[in-house]
Simulated assay, not measured.
Amino acid sequence: MLSLITAGLAPAIALLFFFYFKDEYEQEPLSSVIRCFLFGALLVFPIMFIQYALMEEGIIKSTFMEAFIQTALIEEFLKWFIVMIAVFHHVHFNQRYDGIVYATAVALGFASAENMLYLISNGLETAFLRALFPVSSHALFGVVMGYYLGCAKFNKKKKVRFLFYSFFFPYLLHSSYNLIFLTQNRWMYFSIPFMIFLWILGIRKVKKANQSQRTFIQKNMAS
């Protein structure tokens, strides 16, 4: 059981600290980050219930509905909702990069709980691929979500637009990710390039968030 818990949690914790320490200016309180991580982990239960109910009611009738509604829409909306109500207006959310930290914490909390449930059902032999694909992808969806939440927090003129982006782009990426695994027999040929794209996109968002904070500090120093 200890090895299963370790295999389930380790990738998420490693990714969370990777993005946490990418903040070049002010790390968030660990208590706030851990709280978001736990909120994300608890999301797995209502999400599983909703997904099960959709299947039982026969609402999901195609692969596209499974990819775009049953999984991506429900998971990304609830993760976005938790970040909005838990930390978006919090005093510690005081720079653009903070959105990345908190959204990634929620995403990885969910991914770790989902991962452990999957490993319990399917065994530890799936742990490496789970870490490489589902856990990493959730982290990167969180990075994109958090980047645009940071933009929304500090750009009142475009707040509504950035809030929309903060849900829509992770949702679109998640749906695309799902389609690869649901429709392609040789999914490895498509999933690896897609994950490379996700990592490039995520790291660019990290750099842009830090650059925005750097520019903000320089302007304040100049004035």
Rank of each mutant, 00 (worst) to 15 (best):
F21C: 09
Y171K: 02
I200D: 02
T126A: 12
F194M: 10
Y148L: 07
L163S: 05
P193D: 01
C151H: 04
I192S: 07
F45W: 09
K61R: 14
K219S: 13
L173P: 04
S176Y: 09
I200E: 01
T71A: 14
N185R: 09
Y148T: 05
S121W: 02
F49T: 13
F164W: 06
V206G: 03
G146H: 03
Y177I: 11
I5Q: 02
I82F: 13
S112Q: 09
D23W: 10
S166K: 01
S166D: 00
L172F: 08
G146E: 00
I5T: 12
V91C: 06
Y118T: 04
F141C: 03
M48G: 15
V160T: 14
L179A: 13
M55P: 05
Y97A: 09
L149E: 00
F45L: 14
Q211G: 15
N185D: 11
M116S: 06
S223K: 11
L198C: 12
L179R: 05
F164P: 00
F21R: 11
I120P: 02
M55G: 11
V91L: 11
I82R: 01
Y148M: 06
S212V: 09
F194G: 10
S212Q: 05
P46A: 04
I192R: 03
L16A: 02
G8E: 00
F133G: 05
